[in-house]
Nucleic acid binder design. Structure first.
Length: 364
DNA sequence: CGCACTGGGTCA
DNA sequence: TGACCCAGTGCG
């Protein structure tokens, strides 16, 4: 069946809620690892755009399948990152970088197997924000429809390769390959945030988020790790999750960020983890809050991204005026226990909490 | 000892 | 079965 989605959570005609859901249908639910070829076409690409699927690609390739990607590349613009290309190449994917004066701006994803051709035509790039945060329109065309209009992935990709375009295939073994210069380094923590990335996430905390915060040291409730569970739609809100797990056998992708625990007056390094191979949990480590009694079920946490890897965390207790003021930004329901979350710009957040007046001047 | 891991639960 | 929810174990 064909499907259309306008994400995040705006409109959908079928069961899938957004681009990631459509991709899961094509590449996971309706696909057997090793069968046929997976295709990726995107002008922009970063690590978190693919983090849901690297495991899927690896398993597919290990079982004899192919993954073919066409990504934008440029020496002057930040189109695709070294990190996403390295990860794709390491899993065995074939990556073509298209360097054009006029951007390769198409976005399409799909698969070709013995069952036929399927494709998604979308505005969503292979990036964290494109996959979930931005408003993006996507259409999935099933094999019957693709067959009806005579679409072929092989035909389209061969036609792309036949253009007089500047196409590069970076060599994973050779860091001096000039093709790498078409890619940017997204792990440069000195990167200045785009204004649209200067955002604050507000999330209504639940029991699981606060049980260890409320626990008494020495009790069993105090044991284990202290996390806030976030929506996996929040990939785009964090730096690339490029750290792979060392110990376990279930792959996880994580990153370390600097978190200023404003209520503690303390800054700590904490880990953000995506449990790709366990239960798809997306967790923010908040260990320093353990046992502090600073947050309980129903309170609001505000997580403010100030720089690429620097964040601030503030807790607003249920029943306080600022809790009420911030709750109206938590507009998306997630999970099945009434958790809600949402975003607002940092300038708006600063104004709400009184760090800044309506004219944007900082208040001391 | 804290937290990276584990592996269930639960509802749509 | 996807995506949060939950309660630990045991490693370093």
């Amino acid at each position: 069946m064909n499907e259309l989605t306008l994400h995040p959570n705006v409109y959908q005609t079928g069961a899938s809620k957004g681009l990631v859901g459509l991709l899961e249908r094509l590449w996971v639910r309706e696909h057997t690892p090793g069968e046929g070829t997976i295709y990726i076409i995107s002008g922009f690409a970063n690590y978190n755009g693919g983090v849901r699927f690297y495991d899927v690609f690896r398993r597919h390739i290990d079982n004899g399948g192919r993954v073919v990607a066409f990504l934008g590349g440029s020496t002057s613009q930040r189109l695709s990152s070294k990190q996403v290309v390295r990860e794709l190449l390491q899993s065995g994917a074939e990556v073509n970088l298209i360097n054009r004066k006029r951007l390769m701006h198409a976005k399409s994803y799909g698969v070709c197997t013995g069952d036929g051709e399927k494709l998604i035509v979308t505005s969503g790039n292979f990036t964290g924000p494109g996959m979930s945060q931005n408003v993006e329109l996507s259409v999935l065309l099933d094999s019957a429809t693709a067959g009806e209009m005579d679409f072929s992935w092989e035909g389209m990709t061969q036609a792309m390769l036949g253009q007089r375009w500047d196409i590069h295939r970076p060599d994973i073994a050779n860091p001096d390959d000039p093709a790498w210069q078409l890619l940017y380094d997204e792990e440069d923590r000195g990167l200045v945030l785009d204004e649209s990335d200067e955002a604050t996430m507000v999330v209504r905390l639940g029991h699981a988020d606060t049980a260890r915060i409320m626990a008494i040291p020495g009790t069993s409730a105090y044991k284990g790790s202290q996390y806030f569970w976030l929506s996996k739609d929040a990939f785009g809100f964090f730096p690339p999750l490029t750290i792979l797990n060392r110990r376990g056998y279930k792959s996880t992708y994580s990153t370390m960020i600097t978190m200023n625990f404003v209520d503690l007056g303390r800054e700590e390094e904490v880990r953000v983890t995506f449990e790709a191979d366990n239960n798809l949990d997306f967790r923010l480590g908040t260990g320093p809050l353990r046992g502090t009694q600073l947050a309980q079920d129903g309170d609001i946490a505000a997580i403010t991204r100030r720089r690429e890897g620097s964040y601030e965390l503030r807790i607003y207790r249920d029943g306080t005026p600022l809790h009420t003021a911030l709750t109206r930004y938590a507009i998306s329901f997630i999970g099945h226990r009434g958790k809600m979350y949402g975003y607002l710009s940092n300038s708006e957040f600063d104004e709400v909490i009184g760090l800044r007046n309506a004219r944007g001047a900082r208040i001391h």
